[in-house]
């Protein structure tokens, strides 16, 4: 399925045939390595809106470059990480976040994993208890084989192995 990503990537190239630029250009890098590292970390959480699920850190689209420069501009202006994110969300909406915020409409998205794990665990535990109980019950209700049955069983075993797959 890689190829389909590749195809979308090329479709995208055709759409934005402007001189393609690689992600994070040398001229974008900030002088302060600490601030640059912050910018990179933030870039990885922001989506290039014209690409297929690429972060602006990976993307080559001109828009991604604009966003990268914008992020660095805000950092240079002294914004904190969350201020930069808020600034971009106000401008471009939640769509820009690759990690959606924990809100009412993303409750299911975030909670499914823990719920599935807890629910699955609970179901297993209940199932195990029920089966253990019914299994124990069976033991009590079913006495062992009678002497006659034992003898018959021995006879059967001695004669030939039973076919494994009765039709």
């Amino acid at each position: 399925m890689r190829k389909l990503i590749a195809i979308s990537f090329v479709v995208w190239m055709a759409a934005f045939a402007a001189p393609s630029a690689r992600a994070v250009q040398p001229d974008e890098i900030m002088a302060d390595p600490v601030k640059e590292a912050r910018a990179r970390d933030l870039s990885r959480e922001l989506r290039c809106m014209v690409c297929q699920n690429q972060s602006i850190d990976d993307s080559e689209a001109p828009l991604a470059r604009d966003l990268r420069l914008l992020v660095r501009e805000r950092i240079a202006a002294g914004d904190s990480d969350s201020q930069v994110i808020d600034f971009l969300v106000v401008r471009y909406g939640e769509f820009v976040l690759l990690k959606p915020r924990f809100e009412r409409q993303t409750l299911l998205l975030w909670l499914l994993t823990p719920l599935a794990l807890a629910g699955g665990g609970l179901a297993l535990w209940m199932h195990g208890r029920r089966r253990a109980k019914s299994g124990a019950g069976d033991d009590r209700s079913e006495p062992g084989l009678s002497a006659e049955e034992e003898a018959r069983l021995q006879r059967l075993i001695a004669v030939e192995p039973p076919p494994e797959n009765p039709a």
Binding site: G93, L98, T113
Partner: peptide, 18 residues
């Protein structure tokens, strides 16, 4: 009608810890 994105940071937080 709301558009959200779910990308690598989401999966790193939810898939990886499992």
């Amino acid at each position: 009608g709301d558009k959200i994105s779910v990308g690598a940071p989401f999966f790193n937080l939810t898939f990886a810890p499992l």
